[in-house]
């Protein structure tokens, strides 16, 4: 039992600072893989972090802005708003005021795969910073404006746990810096094709070479046939051909005519003879 007591003691010792070091975290990246974007950041809501609170204030600030107090001497929340701090550049602002979720019926995030449950799980477990695009321009807007964030800017967040009278009961520490995505111009994409593919090199070089060889073969072939065949042979061949044709035209013609005239007569005697 002895060692266990020390272990428990160690756990209690660790528990205290760890509990104090609770801070807003990015939503589970297993499910929210595209987070953060240029203007939005999805954070986990502080479920079961401080059970007795009624409301939770999410405070945001741009890294490096003066950290003005979030509540007055009576611990009443008096932080500024998005428009009052230029979106967190001049000090912390209230991103949203959320009801502190009951620490019961915790649902697994994997249930979000069910389209009928995703809405309720999202509203219960996740807060999306930068989710309201109209509140800045809408003159009738009441409440805390959760306007889109700046791109390529580092933000920190903090939760304030209050009772129903906005009296701060507890708070988390500031989160680590979360940087929104730096949107690049599409013209900065390098479209240089880079190295040619091996297939293209093989195909082009082989085809060029083959064409060269075929061309050479043609030149040699024609030259050979002209030099070898044409000057002497072809002329003589044409001569013989013409004479042959002439002979053929004359001789068989006569035969045909004669046979046509007296075919059977001439044929019969020949056979007899």
């Amino acid at each position: 039992m002895g060692p266990w007591r020390y272990l428990i003691g160690l756990c209690c010792f660790l528990q205290a600072p760890l509990a104090g070091a609770d801070m807003p975290l990015l939503a589970n990246s297993d499910f929210f893989s595209l987070n953060p974007t240029q203007t939005t950041i999805a954070l986990e809501q502080p479920i079961c972090m401080f059970k007795s609170a009624v409301n939770v204030y999410l405070i945001g600030i741009v890294a490096g802005a003066p950290n003005t107090p979030l509540y007055d001497g009576n611990k009443k929340v008096n932080a500024s708003t998005y428009s009052g701090t230029q979106g967190g550049k001049t000090g912390p602002y209230i991103v949203a005021k959320l009801p502190n979720q009951q620490c019961i019926n915790i649902q697994a995030l994997s249930n979000m795969a069910d389209p009928t449950q995703v809405q309720s799980i999202l509203s219960k477990y996740v807060v999306r910073v930068g989710a309201d695009v109209t509140c800045l321009t809408n003159p009738n807007f009441v409440g805390y404006c959760n306007a889109p964030l700046q791109g390529n800017t580092q933000y920190s967040f903090k939760y304030l746990f209050t009772d129903s009278g906005d009296i701060v009961q507890s708070e988390t520490s500031w989160s680590l810096g979360i940087t929104t995505v730096n949107g690049k111009a599409s013209s900065t994409i390098d479209t240089w094709p880079g190295r040619r593919s091996g297939g293209m090199i093989v195909l082009t070089s082989i085809l060029s070479t083959l064409m060269f060889f075929v061309f050479i073969a043609y030149v040699i072939g024609f030259a050979y046939s002209i030099a070898n065949g044409s000057p002497a042979k072809e002329v003589s061949r044409h001569d013989t051909q013409t004479t042959a044709v002439l002979q053929k035209a004359q001789e068989p013609g006569e035969v045909t005519y004669s046979s046509a005239l007296t075919g059977s007569e001439r044929y019969a005697p020949t056979q007899q003879a």
Binding site: D30, F32, S33, P115, V118, Q119
Partner: peptide
């Protein structure tokens, strides 16, 4: 809603 928050 699930789509625009990027749920996989």
């Amino acid at each position: 809603q699930g789509c625009i928050v990027g749920l996989s």
